[in-house]
Write a protein that binds this DNA or RNA. Structure first.
Lengths: 148, 148
DNA sequence: TTATATGCAAACGCTTTGCATCACG
DNA sequence: CGTGATGCAAAGCGTTTGCATATAA
């Protein structure tokens, strides 16, 4: 759905080689609309006739995750998936339980809550993950059509 | 560390059979101190000479998770683990990155944040997970001793 | 007695790794 | 050129399943 170039140029900027396989992975990710698994990327690369080895997909995904170009999310089912994301600020993902699309949201005031947790538990917090699941506006509309 | 009886009686209350295997799993969980994996439970049951089959451990864990007696947490590493927890109110876990112990915290004001997310994204939120990782007080102390 | 639960072992699916080859820079 | 990347296939690991047997209620 968006520009693979962003992924590709970011890759180059990190001193990583700009290989055909990585371009293919970037393209495959760019055409994903929502969260996706390694297998989805593999399938997308195959359907585009830019076949990439399974191992390379995993290696690329790991690399992109290190560069914060994609982020791993754990679905409620326990499955692992990835979402493309902006590398900049800290943010969280809101994932649609129906269609899998996700949007990013900022911190929205989580900081004070973490402060309260530190105060009440004595922990020093290193990291946190907030994963939110629900129905996106489109799927809400679809649900209404179906029931009406 | 705590009473397996709580798990056992809750099991009975749910119309489930109180079998030897389930007692063994409950005991194994009770002696876990922090988060644990299915393999940990299996190992604990073996060391106590109350051997339980691998499949039964997974089935029991699934059952206990359904009853909200344990909760599945996804560690930053991507591994799946479980923590024992109180079945009552909605809460989240704060997990120590060093020793794995976890404590429960309540909502602490997440509600308004979710409301803001709904407002800004148009999603209707079904569920959420907040996972917080850091150093517990004990591990902070240990770290100081070591560096001092 | 009868529906449930168990145990085993094999099947499974996702992910990683070893290693020889390839190609970006 | 040299190092890093690739691809294949096999290994690895956690998890699930089929099925005959055992057992709680």
């Amino acid at each position: 759905m968006s520009k693979p170039n962003a992924l590709i140029s970011a890759l180059g900027g990190a001193g990583k080689r700009l290989t055909a396989a990585r371009r293919a992975v970037a393209e495959a990710i760019a055409e994903q609309d929502g969260h996706f698994t390694a297998e989805d990327v593999l399938a997308a690369s195959r359907s585009r006739r830019r076949v990439v080895g399974r191992a390379t997909v995993f290696r690329s995904l790991e690399l992109l995750a290190d560069l914060h170009l994609v982020e791993r999310v754990d679905l409620p089912s326990g499955d692992h998936a990835y979402v493309a994301c902006e590398p900049d600020a800290h943010h969280h993902h809101v994932v649609c339980s129906t269609c899998g699309r996700s949007v990013e949201v900022g911190e929205l005031g989580l900081g004070p809550i973490l402060g309260r947790i530190e105060a009440s538990t004595g922990f020093v917090i290193d990291s946190h993950r907030l994963e939110v699941f629900g129905q996106c506006p489109d799927c809400q509309a679809d649900a209404q059509h179906r029931s009406a």
